[in-house]
Amino acid sequence: MIRLIQLEWEKFKKNNVFRTMVIAYIFLLPALIFSMESILDFIDFPLKSKSVFFEFPLIWKFMAYSGSWQAFFFFGFLGVYMVTSEFQNRTLRQNILTGLNRSAFFGGKLLFATLLSALSTLYFVVITLVLGYLKSKNVEFESATQGVTSLSFRYFLMTFSYLNFGMFLGYILRKNGLALLLYFTYIIFLEKIIRWWLQSKVLGVEDKYNLYYPMNVINDLTPLPLKEMMKQVTSFPAQYHLLEPNLAVALALLWNVLFLVIAYTRFKKMDL
């Protein structure tokens, strides 16, 4: 297992795309929070309190939501790239004919994605703790970290899901440009078109089922803390459609397994 992770690390540690994506995540995760703070100051929204977003416990959910955007962008990109670059450089072929079997190749990528997700989660926890302590006053460690274990797990699952979805498209499409295009198009437009137009308007399926789509499920693992935000807003009604956290976790696991099974089955059968 460690051998396969090391192999992936050797392949990508000097790769500029990999380095850029990781550095961007490391830098932007804390930086975005500061910019949001400035935006809230600037737009003069009718809020009872602005600082509450940057204090414990709300900062956890706020950072997790901010992190989900970056995972969507950087780790999804990386997931696609980690697979398609091996197809396009034909190094996948050379890996196999040098003596790696297909399961080991697939497993190596999966383990590496898992490790990346775990490390990005660890970074998220550390940076949020630091920022939270800087912004909050007189906080006990216990109350500062309440509910963090389950949120961290959801954060990990969210990061892994974007990586996994990217890799899934990589295995299916093989071409970098095509897979990236579909990755971003599907998440930004396509799923929403299917959910809100095709399902309810064309097929006439009830709206309550439109929460179960894969990217919506992943999104609901670490959603914008609307409920908590609404309490800070003076005049907005509290209306939102979110999956219960545990249901989101269960569905996300299911989708991930499905993507893995399809990608693996196809990868085992394909001519390289």
């Binding site: 192999l7 050379q94 003596g99």
Partner: peptide
């Protein structure tokens, strides 16, 4: 296949790595 040395069609290596790093990847495999 680990007991065989093989090239198929084009030479396939990681373009951003040097000769040593590339050979080391195949040594690991």
């Amino acid at each position: 296949r680990r007991h065989i040395g093989a090239i198929l069609e084009t030479p396939n290596f990681y373009p951003y790595l040097d000769a040593d790093d590339n050979l080391d990847i195949y040594r690991r495999i």
